[in-house]
Amino acid sequence: MKTRQFFASLAAASILLAVPAFAADSAQAFVDKAAIGGKFEVDSSQIALGKVQDQSIKDFAQMMIRDHGAANAKLATVAGEQKLKVPSALDAQHQGDLDKLKNAQAPIDPAYVDMQRKAHADAVKLFETYASGGDNAGLKTFAQQTVDTLKTHQQMIEKIAAGQDAITGATTPAVKTDNTPNAAALVPGANSFTEAQAKSRIEGAGYTNVSKLTKDDQGIWRGHATKAGEGLAVGLDYQGNVVAASK
């Protein structure tokens, strides 16, 4: 009887000792992934600032440097309080992606946007999971406080990506012979692009000398531009579609 009680007590003690070890490993795994992801956001965005063309993407990159820089600093503080180590270098996959951006010829708009879409999908999943079931109170609170910002970033980069896709699909517009702009691909709707952003997107579609931009009552920016030496009437809708016609 005493022998059974001894082994039962020993088993219980083993379980209690195992719990902190498991918690530390799980917490460290979160710190590793969050820190590497955050560092990649900052490093890739610093490269993007000098190599992307679209102003809205530059603005997004600047936001990533600011927001993820602050989050990285907060993570380092929380991890330090929990006696956890914060990795100082990227893993092989993220370093490979960073090298691609470094070595790519400007502009790198599509590559940077694609990487940010994947990075934020991974980050939102990681932080949501830890925010709901994390085993370290300090890190769980950090994840809960950060996940909404990550979701906002994800929504922003998805909107930018949609605009880039629309521009890519309309970089070779059908040119008419009359004086009416080809509005077939332009979608009416509330247009959140500023005049500067509209000009930047039109220029990103290959046009120069963009001028006289005004937003009509359908939410479409209309103006004049030049492409291949030809003067064109050009339009930009709220989805980012760029369409032009001979003036």
Rank of each mutant, 00 (worst) to 15 (best):
M115T: 04
T171E: 02
A23G: 01
A143R: 06
A48P: 00
R117W: 01
Q155P: 01
F22P: 00
V234R: 14
A48D: 04
A245R: 12
Y238Q: 05
S56N: 00
E81G: 14
A198G: 07
L17M: 13
A92Q: 12
S9E: 12
A121N: 13
V78N: 07
I65V: 15
D148P: 09
G231E: 10
E128M: 14
G219I: 11
A183W: 04
K199Q: 04
K125E: 11
K100P: 00
A13F: 08
N136R: 09
A245W: 09
A13G: 11
V242L: 12
P110W: 10
L16F: 15
L17A: 13
D122L: 15
A79T: 03
W221S: 11
L232K: 09
Q55A: 06
N182V: 09
A225M: 13
D54M: 15
L49N: 07
A244D: 02
A244S: 13
A228D: 15
K159F: 00
K58E: 04
A198I: 00
G240T: 01
Q218G: 02
D32T: 13
S200R: 06
A123T: 15
G96D: 03
K159P: 02
M1P: 15
N241K: 15
E195T: 04
A73I: 02
A11N: 12
F22I: 13
T146G: 10
G50N: 12
Q197D: 01
S9F: 13
A24D: 03
F7P: 04
G133Y: 12
I157L: 08
A228W: 12
Q164T: 01
Y130V: 11
A228Y: 12
K83L: 04
G204N: 13
L101K: 06
V52L: 11
V78E: 03
Q46F: 08
V31T: 10
A245Y: 03
A183F: 09
T3L: 15
Y130R: 11
P110K: 12
A48Q: 12
A196V: 07
M156H: 14
K83V: 03
D216Y: 05
K33C: 11
A106M: 07
F22A: 14
Y112P: 02
K227N: 10
A121D: 13
N182C: 03
Q28V: 06
Q93W: 06
L126F: 05
P20L: 12
I160F: 01
A233C: 10
D165P: 05
A106I: 10
D114F: 09
K58T: 00
K199P: 01
G134W: 14
A104W: 09
A162N: 04
L150Q: 08
T180I: 08
T129E: 12
H68S: 05
N72Y: 07
T3W: 14
K51S: 08
V242Y: 02
V86M: 08
K100Y: 00
A79E: 00
